[in-house]
Amino acid sequence: MNLLCRSYIKENAIVLTTPKRNKLLKDGPESESLMSNRCHILGRGSYGIVFKAIFREHAVALKIIKKRAILTLHNEAHALNWNHRNIVRIIKLESTPEFGLIIMERSNGFCLQRVVDTLALPLMHRLFIVLDVLAALRYCHGRHVLHLDVKPGNILIALDNQNNCSNRSYICKLCDFGCSLKLNESSDSSNTNGTTTKGTLRYMSPEALRSAPLSCASDMYSLGITMWQLQSRRPPYYTLTCNETIAYQVVKHQLRPDNYARLKELQLSSNYTKNPPLSSCYCANSVELICSYINQVNPQLDLYKKARRQLNFETSHGRVNKRSTKQQKQNKQPKLSHYFYNQPTVSATSLESAYSDLYRSCWISQAELRLNSFKLQQRLELILHKCLSN
C-alpha cells in the first residue's frame, strides 16, 4: 500500500477499490464497514450522504444515492467529465437498482451557505463569487444544459493558493447537477418542452413553478435570488413557512424576496388561517402539485411529506466539533473572515444600489426580459473595476 493510501486511511477516507464500490452499491450508506470505521462524512441529505474518499490515488468526494433518488444520476451524468475551474468535476457514476455512487473532485473549502450564515461578505467578494458562478452557468448553457438549482448550498468556496487574483485566495465551484436538464437540441435551443422539474422552490423561476418551458433565463432567475441572499444574508421569503403560499405569490403576484412590506402582510395573514402553515421546507418534490395550487384547481396545504435537503460541503473540515458553541463561534469567524477581508470604501458603499439593480433585472417575471449572462457579466465587471480602483 502506497503512502497516499495510508494517509487517507488515517483520516478515515474510503479507498474506492472495485470490491469496495461493489459492496457500497449493494449495501449503500448503511454499509457495516462505513459505520464501523466512522468514515468522515462531508454532507447529508434526504437522498444520500457524501463521504471523504480516495479513488485512483486522488482525493475525492463520494456521494451515495438512495434508491428512491436513482433517477437523479441521469441528471448528474450531464456534467460527467466536464473540466471547468468553476464546476465541481464529476469523475465517475455507478448504479444498481438499490443504490448509486457519484465520485467527484474534493476541494479544501467551505459551502457558500456556511459563509453567508457566518459573516457579511464585502461587495468585492460578492462580485467575485457571482462572476465565478456565472462562468460556470455559461459553460453549462454552452453545452445545452440547465442547472436548475443554483443557490448558496450548491456553491463551494474552494481555497486556492495558486489563484492569479491578488485580491482573493479562493475560487467558486458550482455543484449538484441532480436537478439539471438537457435542452432539447431537436427544437429551439433556447427552450425546453413543458416538463416536470425539481429544484429548490424558493429559488425557482415562475416558469419552473408553472411547469412551463424553461430556458437559460431560468438559471439567471435563481442566480438573481442568490445575489440578493449574499447581500441580505437571509433565506428567500424568510418570514413565510408555507411553500405553497410562496409559489402562488411568486407566480400570480410577482412576489420577490426584497418586498419586505408584502412579506410582512403575508406573515400576519398566515397567523389567522384555519390550517396552520407547514414547517419550513425548501424544495418542490412535485411541481404538478404546486401548479394545481397556483391554478386554484385543488389548493391544499398538506402537499409535502418531507423536505429535500441538498447535500453540501459545510462540514468538510475535520470531524464533528464537540467543543462548546461559544468556542466554535470564536474559532470559526476569524477562519472565514480571513479569506474575505476587504477594506470598505465610500465608493463600494455607493455601488450597492447598482448591485441591487442587477439582481432585480435577473428575476423579472418575463424570462425574455431578464438580464442575460453576457450583459450581467459586463455590468458585474464594471462594478468590480470601480471597487478595485479605490
Score class of each variant (00 low, 15 high):
residue 8 Y to K: 09
residue 9 I to R: 11
residue 12 N to S: 10
residue 16 L to K: 00
residue 17 T to A: 06
residue 21 R to H: 05
residue 28 G to S: 02
residue 42 L to Q: 01
residue 43 G to P: 04
residue 45 G to S: 07
residue 45 G to T: 01
residue 49 I to P: 00
residue 55 F to C: 11
residue 56 R to S: 12
residue 57 E to L: 14
residue 64 I to K: 03
residue 81 N to E: 05
residue 82 W to M: 09
residue 83 N to A: 10
residue 92 K to F: 08
residue 93 L to V: 04
residue 102 I to F: 00
residue 103 I to Y: 03
residue 109 G to P: 01
residue 109 G to K: 04
residue 109 G to S: 06
residue 112 L to S: 02
residue 121 L to A: 08
residue 123 L to H: 07
residue 124 M to T: 15
residue 125 H to D: 02
residue 125 H to C: 03
residue 127 L to T: 09
residue 128 F to A: 04
residue 130 V to S: 08
residue 132 D to Q: 09
residue 139 Y to G: 01
residue 147 H to F: 07
residue 148 L to H: 05
residue 150 V to A: 03
residue 159 L to Y: 03
residue 160 D to S: 08
residue 171 I to F: 07
residue 175 C to L: 14
residue 175 C to F: 12
residue 180 S to F: 03
residue 184 N to I: 08
residue 186 S to E: 12
residue 190 S to R: 14
residue 192 T to W: 00
residue 199 G to L: 03
residue 209 L to D: 00
residue 214 L to A: 02
residue 216 C to Y: 12
residue 221 Y to C: 00
residue 234 R to P: 02
residue 237 Y to A: 02
residue 238 Y to F: 15
residue 240 L to E: 01
residue 244 E to G: 13
residue 244 E to C: 13
residue 246 I to V: 12
residue 256 R to F: 09
residue 257 P to E: 04
residue 261 A to C: 11
residue 267 Q to E: 14
residue 269 S to A: 13
residue 271 N to T: 11
residue 273 T to N: 13
residue 291 C to D: 08
residue 292 S to G: 10
residue 292 S to W: 11
residue 294 I to Q: 02
residue 303 L to S: 10
residue 306 K to R: 15
residue 320 V to I: 12
residue 327 Q to N: 11
residue 340 F to P: 01
residue 341 Y to C: 10
residue 345 T to L: 05
residue 355 Y to P: 02
residue 359 Y to M: 08
residue 363 W to P: 06
residue 364 I to K: 13
residue 367 A to G: 07
residue 369 L to F: 10
residue 371 L to N: 06
residue 377 Q to Y: 06
residue 387 C to T: 06
residue 388 L to W: 07
